[in-house]
Simulated assay, not measured.
Amino acid sequence: MISVEHLTKRYGRHTAVDDVSFHCEPGTVTGFLGPNGAGKSTTMRMICGLTPPSVGAATVLGRPYRQLPNPGREVGVLLDASAQHAGRTGREALTVAAATMGVGRREVAVKLEQVGLTGTAAKRRVRAYSLGMRQRLGLAHALLGDPRVLILDEPANGLDPEGIFWMRGLLRDFADRGGTVLLSSHLLREVEAVADRLVVIGGGRIVAQGGKDELLAGDRTLVRARDAAALRRALAAAGLAASDGTDGSLLVPATAETVGQAAADAGVPLSELRPAEGGGLEQLFLSLTTNSIPQEAAR
């Protein structure tokens, strides 16, 4: 499992990640979502021991990542598909990784076949790979040690629709066999299709987390007023985030009673107030993260 407790990262006066806590359990895929600049990658780098936290701690399988004796055999990590030796072939890159982890060479061929890099593709130098091929090689590297945990940052970048569908099945199968997956992606529909749990970060802070079904069934309200600017100010004063709906409406992640009270307190007359129909993960994401990104936030 993955345990994140009060992780904070400051760069001078700027706080990139602010008191982030969540857990990823075996047998689940956790979707880690947030707009660019929200702190997703910084959080994942802290989990993997690449960026030291200013406050807090993270453990994988009960230990800090750096204390794992052979981390590649326990945790498969893909944070940047481009961070691979461009002069080696795909097969050579994986063979070096296998030797480092103490994995038999036979597993190199097995994993290359699993990710669809066989024949000519395996013999091609990485510098000639497309982004999608680099993603597949990165996934092969992450899977090479038969780990119990996968930590993946935007692994679907560059994959075609068929590749995305394949990756979804791979991650679902991994979790169904008892593995733990932490998945960051901007492809919300794909996350919605594969994830069991969601952690949403905005402006460096967790704005929502829980079971996917629970969060998608949460209270959301569609509200409209002739004076849209005054309505926005009223909602902001009440601490309610709002995202643009249709025809000048706003979508608010709160009950109709709470939204109506905020408008009434500010003296803003409403022309429409009703529970919003389910809009899926995309609509939930927008309602939670709109206006949550600091101007100088680091991704």
Rank of each mutant, 00 (worst) to 15 (best):
A121M: 07
K123C: 10
M133W: 00
S130I: 06
L143W: 12
A98L: 06
E113L: 12
G116K: 02
A128S: 13
L144V: 09
T120A: 14
L117Y: 01
A109W: 06
R136M: 09
M133Q: 07
R136P: 01
M101H: 07
V110E: 15
L131Y: 06
L112R: 02
G119R: 02
T118V: 13
G102W: 02
L117G: 00
L117S: 01
E107R: 15
T118S: 12
G102L: 06
S130G: 05
V110Y: 14
Q114E: 15
G116L: 04
A98Q: 01
V103E: 00
G104H: 10
Q114G: 10
A140I: 09
L139C: 05
K111D: 09
L112P: 01
G104Q: 12
G104S: 14
G132W: 01
H141A: 15
R148S: 13
A121I: 05
K111C: 13
M101K: 01
V108P: 00
G102D: 03
K111Q: 15
G145M: 05
R134L: 10
V103W: 01
A99M: 14
D146M: 14
L139A: 03
G132M: 02
K111G: 04
R105W: 07
V108Y: 00
A142V: 11
A128T: 12
E107P: 01
Q114N: 12
E113M: 12
V103S: 01
L144H: 04
R106T: 14
R125C: 09
A98I: 05
K111I: 13
V108L: 08
M133N: 03
R124D: 03
A140T: 09
R106L: 10
G116D: 02
Y129V: 05
T118A: 10
E107K: 11
G132I: 01
Q114V: 14
T118I: 09
G116T: 03
L139M: 14
G116N: 07
H141F: 12
A121G: 05
G102N: 08
R124Y: 04
L139R: 01
G132N: 04
E107N: 10
R106N: 13
G132P: 01
R127W: 12
A128D: 13
G104W: 03
K123S: 12
S130N: 05
L144S: 05
R148H: 13
Q135W: 03
E113Y: 11
R127D: 14
T120N: 09
G119V: 08
R136K: 13
G102E: 07
G104L: 10
V115D: 03
A140Y: 05
